[in-house]
Computed example of a mutant assay.
Amino acid sequence: MSERGRITWPSASDPLWELDWELDPPPRSDGLTVRNVRYRGQQVLYRGSLPSLTSINMPGAGQFHTWSLNYATAEYRAGTPGKKVSVYTGYYGDTSDVGLETHYDVPMGGGTQRWTQRWRFWADGQIQPQLFSYYTRDTEQNWSHMPDWRLDFDVTGASDDLALLYDPTETTGHGWGKGWIPERNERRWWVYSPEGRMHSQGPTGPSAGPAARTPGTAVRWAVMDKAAPNRGYMIAPRFSDHYAVRYVDIVRYRGDETAAVGTPYRYNRAFYQNGEDTEWEDAVVWYGGFMWHREEGTPSKRHLSEGPTLWPFRYH
């Protein structure tokens, strides 16, 4: 079985957001997935998913544990008989959003690991793919979770994309505004919290710049359509007050490159990095998050959240 639906919000006659969503059965393990996402009538995402979620050193799970997020592992929602996905609208002063949510509860290590997966679409065009973690048992053990989102941007259309990196310390002009550096080939950036230090795997040189940077917490990426009026979305990573490693991969779209590959440990995982051109092509962004359960075991340390923030430009 699966669960699917469509959102047209706030009204069918004057929508800000239009999108399809799905929660598929095994063998798919993409979690709650969105497709054909349009804001103000313009295409944003062809598909957004959570293809990979790995835990390291979790109680009862061994060194590595890969979670399957799909219809079979999701929980039925209270108040929505027979449904595993809830759709809601929130109002917060002068802004509002429409969201999707599902839960996964798994007994593990003498406790229960609860995942809450959400997609939030705000009236101002902001998108927030989110994952929340809660472990019910007190423990003195440290462990971490690493969720990997795949964001297949089709800004205005599938082709003509350009990915850019924003580094406020960049002094060389590249023609896209101060600090903006074009990423013309497939490339991976590791981002370290809390200081915003970075290093990369991929092309370097006069156009790409150095393999190591320290842009601080102002770092951003963007995927922009090169055709006028140059619409696009910025991707802002989440920063922590503790040590954490997140990453952003820019890759060229390939129809068979939708699942996480390689070993469970992210440093050895190859997300289709082979140096292909991404400029004037269909760009895909993989965002790898980091969630750290600390040994204190207090309730505040057991509630964790992760996910990037996506901001539109030239969509109004």
Rank of each mutant, 00 (worst) to 15 (best):
L69G: 05
T169W: 05
Y91T: 12
L50K: 03
R6S: 09
A78I: 04
P194M: 09
R254Y: 10
R294T: 11
A72T: 11
Y104M: 04
R114W: 00
T217N: 13
V245A: 12
Q113E: 11
D124G: 01
P264T: 09
G209K: 03
R187K: 15
Y315Q: 10
S55P: 00
G202R: 03
S49K: 13
V191F: 09
G275I: 06
S86P: 00
R246S: 11
V285W: 01
N230R: 08
W143E: 01
H293R: 14
Y46N: 12
R314T: 11
V251K: 11
V106Q: 15
Y287K: 01
P194Y: 01
K178I: 09
H174R: 13
G205L: 06
R118W: 03
R213M: 09
S13R: 11
M58K: 05
S11Y: 08
Q128W: 06
W21H: 03
W143C: 07
V285I: 15
A61H: 01
Y104R: 02
L304F: 03
D152N: 12
P308E: 12
A74S: 15
T171D: 09
P27L: 10
Y265S: 07
P229D: 02
I250V: 15
A260I: 00
L164C: 04
W67I: 05
W221G: 10
